[in-house]
Simulated assay, not measured.
Amino acid sequence: MNKAQLINVVAQATGNRATARLAVESVLDAIVRAVAAGEVVSVTGFGSLTAEERPAHTARNPQTGERIQVGVSRIVKFRPGARFKDLVAGRRVMPESGNCIQKDPKTTKVARP
């Protein structure tokens, strides 16, 4: 799924493509800005995005075989949430409709005599 397809899915839920486009782009922009600033973005049921620093190291140029020094770099890591992993692995049934990452409703406790 690409961004345009994601906007179309959100537009089906909202009924308005312009609103859906604004919503998707605003959420993505907020995530990118927060991670770039070093913050952890955590969405319950979906996962967490973090920026991590890779230390400098020696690598090999695949074309020449020559050793090269690679400097410190920052990367983005994604760690999926438990519900997301369970749905992908098939340990949890994908709901027919509604929000698939929403928490299960709490069950009501029955008073015992």
Rank of each mutant, 00 (worst) to 15 (best):
M1H: 10
K3I: 11
A4H: 05
L6Y: 02
I7R: 02
N8A: 12
V9T: 11
A11L: 05
T14C: 05
G15H: 04
N16T: 02
R17G: 09
T19D: 06
L22H: 01
L22P: 00
L22C: 04
V24W: 04
S26M: 12
V27W: 03
L28H: 01
A30Y: 02
A30G: 06
I31Y: 03
V32W: 05
V32C: 14
V32D: 11
A36L: 05
A37R: 02
G38R: 10
V41H: 05
S42I: 03
V43N: 06
T44K: 10
G45P: 13
G45K: 01
F46Y: 12
S48F: 00
S48A: 08
L49Y: 10
T50V: 15
T50K: 05
T50N: 06
A51S: 13
A51L: 13
A51Y: 03
E52M: 06
R54Q: 07
A56V: 15
A56I: 15
A56W: 12
T58R: 03
R60W: 11
Q63C: 10
G65F: 09
G65D: 13
I68M: 14
I68H: 12
Q69K: 14
G71Y: 07
R74T: 08
I75Y: 04
V76T: 13
V76Q: 05
K77F: 06
K77L: 11
P80H: 04
P80W: 03
G81H: 00
G81A: 14
R83T: 15
K85C: 11
L87S: 00
L87P: 00
L87F: 03
V88T: 03
A89C: 04
G90M: 00
R91K: 09
R92T: 06
V93S: 12
V93L: 12
V93W: 00
P95F: 03
E96M: 12
E96Y: 06
E96I: 11
E96Q: 13
G98C: 11
G98T: 08
N99H: 09
N99M: 02
N99E: 09
N99G: 07
C100I: 05
C100Q: 00
I101W: 00
Q102R: 07
Q102K: 12
K103L: 15
K103Q: 15
D104L: 07
K106M: 09
T107S: 15
T107Q: 15
T107L: 15
T108G: 13
T108P: 05
T108F: 11
K109S: 11
P113W: 01
